[in-house]
């Protein structure tokens, strides 16, 4: 229940209507969106029960490892109602054509593989919010100071998922496990996304805001 309440509102991309469509415009829009959404996600993390009790250093380490997984999982959940399209924001939906134009076809297809997986499973909002918190708590940072505290956070979230499934899907005893087993694909997809945006950063043709840059650099 706390995670449902903490879930941020939808976000808007607001692409500049005066700029003609191009790869640079699409990537600029996405990088700006990502930067704003990261601010929102850091606020969200503080509402995960147990997260604020971690040391500031460990909170930072988890976010530095898990931020792209959180961004992608949110895009995936928003896209569950559509066919072969990614809802990056309420007003920014990318289809295959736009993905090609932005040079994001491979990455977006990888994200669509996740969408397909969760569609087949019928992922619910309750499951999505817990899974997202688990992705953060389980982001496998190498810099954790108090790994027992992080383990306790993982256990609480894992317990919440199991409890939810026991109450709502008693006919499928393995559903919590099935959901957890989707996380490797999320990790893999996030790593591709980070790699892709790191090379865009090195090209230097797309303006990026400071928080997005800071977190990309944490991954470099």
């Amino acid at each position: 229940s706390l995670l449902l309440v903490a879930e941020p509102e939808g976000i808007f991309a607001m692409p500049d209507p005066t700029v003609p469509e191009s790869d640079i415009k699409a990537l600029t829009t996405l990088c700006d969106l990502a930067d704003r959404e990261l601010v929102v996600n850091i606020g969200w993390a503080k509402h995960i029960p147990g997260f604020p009790s971690l040391s500031l250093a460990d909170q930072m380490s988890l976010l530095q490892s898990g931020w792209m997984e959180i961004l992608i999982l949110r895009v995936v959940f928003r896209s569950l109602g559509l066919e072969d399209k990614l809802v990056y924001a309420e007003d920014y939906v990318m289809d295959e054509e736009q993905s090609k134009l932005a040079g994001l076809l491979d990455l977006n297809n990888a994200i669509l593989q996740l969408v397909k997986k969760y569609k087949t499973m019928g992922l619910e909002k309750e499951e999505f919010v817990v899974l997202k918190a688990i992705a953060l708590a389980n982001s496998d940072s190498m810099q954790i100071e108090d790994s027992e505290a992080v383990q306790r956070l993982q256990d609480v979230l894992h317990g919440a998922l199991q409890e939810y499934e026991a109450a709502h899907r008693p006919e499928d005893a393995r559903r919590a496990g099935k959901l957890i087993m989707t996380l490797p694909l999320l990790r893999q997809t996030a790593a591709r996304a980070v790699q892709h945006f790191c090379s865009i950063k090195q090209d230097g043709r797309v303006p990026m805001h400071k928080l997005f840059l800071e977190l990309l650099e944490a991954k470099a």
Partner: peptide, 15 residues
């Protein structure tokens, strides 16, 4: 950690 100033600030701000 010095390098991650914005993240640090955002986490320290209340709410």
């Amino acid at each position: 950690k010095e390098k991650h100033k914005i993240l640090h600030q955002l986490l320290q701000n209340s709410t």
